[in-house]
Design a protein around this nucleic acid. Structure first.
Lengths: 223, 223
DNA sequence: GTCTATAAGCCGATAGAC
DNA sequence: GTCTATCGGCTTATAGAC
């Protein structure tokens, strides 16, 4: 049995990701969830709140998983490769959630925008500090770590724009390829030699994300 | 003197890029252009047509410039580096136009969507074939050229999400850095050695784009 | 928790005068 | 080429019964 609350969450997620927040009416959400508009307002305060909840839930799982990556990897190179695989995985498996988080930013206002912005900044900080550490240790070589982190983040985020589960390439293959792209991009070196994902010991992305999801759900259950 | 038509185009461009197509009302467009709603309809047929015109104009300039790149560069390595610098430049200087082209896709319907999709596919084809040629010649080494072209395109497109003319890094510096990222990512090699943009002879991006813009405006003047 | 009914206002688009 | 006035419908959100 799936609760009304969950049906609303899923209806909004599908509609927001396919048509966009502004183009989605509360009638459509109520209709897809199988309830009336008035009932919908029993579960939410405003349409924007529904959006914020979706974005907050998606971001908190992503951040929790990225923090797990930091705990479970040995150095900047493994950490970056694992962060890339995680980000690609999230943007493929949770395509709808990821695309809402990435694109509906401008529909937020005031304090809600600030909250989401802080979460995004925190996540970006994990990437940036990973590359900065790699450069300062000397196992990466890139002039502007911040610029490189933006480049890699946008590259991985883009997966949600074109990935299809029915496509030729599996998500894990894409993730591994992108991790190799990332290692080349930051000129990762161990003992002067180039590195690929196959040379590294990296936690399994799907397991790691599942664990992060459980942590988040334990502290604040999904809508 | 700036014509009413141009004022409408610029108003729509600013509003669509800041708030999104769906969130922008024709009242706002008319107001910002300094005319009435009824007058607005003297210059356009529907709101969606206004969007299509903006997207078509932006894409046609980008494609014309990319084709100029192909004419003016000697091999796949120089061509890819030049395509990257062009794409970054367009997404920084023409941030508004680029973000509308990239994000308002889902507001298009029917034949209009098809027209824009074809243009985008044509542009992506130029990138893909450049990397494919590099791999087949042997000066690049990447398992899936198509995947690498998606990765690089999304990386460069992302510049429009965070770039600011007031920021620390100049757009030409970002473009050159990204081109170097790209050459590392596809493992570009000349005589077995890695390559950077400084080793290459590449047309000046701004000049090249200006020339492409003139070509487009000569065949179909801007709105 | 769910509903019907409705408020109050904005939406894209048009008619028709000047 | 520009305007005022307006149409019909859709928007988010609420009141109040069950």
């Amino acid at each position: 049995m799936i609760s009304t609350e969950e049906r609303i969450h899923e209806a909004a997620l599908r509609l927001f990701s396919e048509r966009g927040f502004e183009a989605t009416g509360i009638r459509e959400i109520a209709n897809e969830a199988g309830i009336s508009i008035a009932s919908l307002y029993h579960y939410m305060t405003t349409k924007e709140d529904l959006l914020v909840n979706i974005m907050e839930y998606g971001l908190s799982r992503l951040i929790a998983a990225a923090e797990l990556v930091s705990e479970r990897t040995a150095g900047p190179i493994s950490r970056l490769a694992s962060l890339i695989q995680l980000h690609v995985w999230v943007h493929g498996v949770g395509q709808k959630s990821a695309s809402v988080v990435d694109t509906e930013y401008r529909s937020l206002t005031g304090e809600r925008l600030e909250r989401i912005r802080e979460m995004r900044d925190r996540y970006e900080g994990i990437w940036r500090s990973t590359i900065q550490e790699g450069v300062s240790i000397g196992c990466m070589d890139v002039p502007e770590p911040k610029l490189a982190s933006f480049a890699l983040l946008e590259m991985c985020t883009g997966v949600s724009h074109w990935y299809s589960a029915n496509g030729e390439l599996s998500l894990s293959y894409i993730g591994e390829s992108y991790a190799n792209y990332g290692l080349d991009l930051v000129r990762a070196r161990v003992d002067g030699n180039t590195v690929t994902v196959k040379d590294l010991i990296i936690p399994r992305t799907a397991d790691l994300y599942r664990e992060a999801e459980m942590r988040v759900n334990a502290s604040a259950p999904p809508a």
